[in-house]
Design a protein around this nucleic acid. Structure first.
Lengths: 222, 222
DNA sequence: GATTGTTCTGACCAATCGGTCAATATCATC
DNA sequence: GATGATATTGACCGATTGGTCAGAACAATC
C-alpha cells in the first residue's frame, strides 16, 4: 500500500482485507471451498483477482482465515457456565446467543456448515481438540445439574447438539425456511417467536421450570 | 449397451445408472454442485468421464435426478397424520422415521443440505410449492391438537423445523458429531440414545405425556 | 458374415481454474 | 525530484472444467 502514517497505513490495509474476507465468506458459504473461485470472490469484492492473492497469499490461506474468524466469534457462547449457574438461565442464554450470532454472521455460519459437509478437512484438529474439550466441560456441568435434580437426566451432549442444530437451522437453511413459510426473510418478530418456542420446548423438555412472564401469550400449560 | 433381451437390457442400464447416481451423490454431497467435477464422479463410479455424460446427458441433469431421488425418499415422513391421530405417536414416529432415513441416505441428505446452502437454485419451486403445502397441512393438524388441549400451543412450523433440524444434524454433521464425541462413526446404541433423547425433550417440551416404558432408564421425572 | 442399432471412450474443444510475475503506480522520506 | 518501499494489476502459465464427437466395440438379427 502507499506509505501513509503507520496507523492509517494499517487501517487502510485492514479495510481492504476485511472487504476481501467478507466477499470470500459470501462465496465460500454458497459454494464451498472447491466450488468457490477466486474470480467470483474478486468480483464480489470489486477488486482484480491478482489483488486478492496479493493480500491473502492463496485460496487456502483466505479460507483458513475465514474459518478462524468464525470460530473466534463463537467464543461468546456458553462461556459463563458454572455448576452453581441456573440451568434455565444458561440454556436460555445459550439459545439466544446462538440465534443472535447466526443472524449477525449468516455467511460465516454457512461457511462452517459447508466445511463440515465436505468432511471437515481443515477442521479436524479443532473439532477433535478444542471443541471436544469445550463440549466435554459443559457436559460435565450439565450432568451435575441432573445429579442434583435441577433438571432431567438427559445426555448433555445430545442437548448441546440439539440447541446447536436448532439455532443453526434458521441461518444456514434460511433459503428453505423462508420459502416454506412464504417470506423473503425472517423478520425480528419471527426470530422472537422462534427463540420463545425453543426456550419453551427445550427447557420444559429438560424438566426446567420456565421463568415467570416468559410464557406470556405463548404456550398454554395445563 | 449390448442388445440383450429387453428386460435384462433395461436391468443392465439400470445397474450402471444406479452406480453413476450413487457416485454423483457422494461427490455432490461433499463438494456441492459447483465444487463437484464430472471427472471425480467418473473416478468414483469407475467409469470414463464420457460414459457419465452418455448416460446422464449433463452435469445438471444428473444433479436434478439426484435431488428428485432424495425428495421421493422423504415421502414416507409424516404421511399418516390426521386430526384424530395421537400427537405423541405422530411426533415420535416423525423423529424415528427421519433419523432412519438420514442414516440410510447420508449422502442424499448432505446433497440436499448443500443445495440449500447454495441458496436452493434448483429447488425454488419445490420449496415454495410442494413442501410449503406439506408443512402447511401438517401445521394445521397440529394446531387442532393444541386447540383441543392435547398439547401445548406452540407454533407448529417451528416444531416441524426443530425436528427436521435436530435429526438432519446427526447425518449432515456426522463429521462434527463423531469427532466431538470421539468416535469413528455413530453406533446403533448412539442412535437409539439420540432418538430416546429427542423423544423425551420434544414430546415433554410440547406438553405431551410420554408413553409408558419409553422412559426406562432415560430421564428422571419429578 | 453383412447389417443395424446401441454402448463405449480417447481425443479434443473453448473456458475457467489457482497462481506467478514483471511492469507500473503510488506515496513517504530525504 | 530522486530514492526506496509498497500497492496494483494485466498478461500469462499449466492444469482442469463441462461438454462434443468420431469412431471403435459390441451383440442381435437377417
Amino acid at each position: 500500500m502507499p506509505a501513509e502514517t503507520v496507523t492509517s497505513e494499517n487501517a487502510q490495509r485492514e479495510r481492504i482485507e476485511q472487504r476481501i474476507l467478507n466477499a470470500g465468506e459470501q462465496v465460500f458459504a454458497k459454494h464451498g471451498y472447491r466450488g468457490a473461485s477466486l474470480q467470483s470472490i474478486a468480483d464480489q469484492a470489486g477488486l482484480p483477482k491478482a489483488n486478492i492473492l496479493y493480500y491473502m497469499g492463496s485460496k487456502q490461506t483466505l479460507y483458513i482465515r475465514l474459518l478462524n474468524r468464525m470460530m473466534r466469534r463463537w467464543n461468546a457462547v456458553l462461556e459463563n457456565i458454572t455448576p452453581d449457574s441456573d440451568p434455565g438461565q444458561v440454556l436460555s442464554s445459550f439459545i439466544r446467543t446462538k440465534m443472535v450470532l447466526g443472524q449477525r454472521y449468516p455467511d460465516g455460519s454457512r461457511l462452517f456448515a459447508a466445511e463440515i459437509l465436505a468432511g471437515a478437512p481443515f477442521l479436524n484438529e479443532y473439532l477433535a481438540g478444542e471443541l471436544r474439550e469445550w463440549v466435554a466441560s459443559r457436559a460435565a456441568i450439565i450432568r451435575q445439574w441432573s445429579a442434583q435434580g435441577r433438571m432431567d437426566d438427559v445426555d448433555p451432549r445430545w442437548l448441546i447438539f440439539l440447541i446447536w442444530s436448532a439455532t443453526q437451522h434458521y441461518t444456514e437453511y434460511s433459503a428453505q425456511v423462508t420459502r416454506v413459510i412464504g417470506r423473503d426473510a425472517l423478520e425480528d418478530e419471527d426470530l422472537a417467536s422462534i427463540i420463545h418456542f425453543l426456550e419453551h420446548v427445550i427447557l420444559k423438555g429438560c424438566g426446567i421450570a420456565l421463568r415467570q412472564g416468559a410464557e406470556s401469550g405463548g404456550a398454554s400449560e395445563p
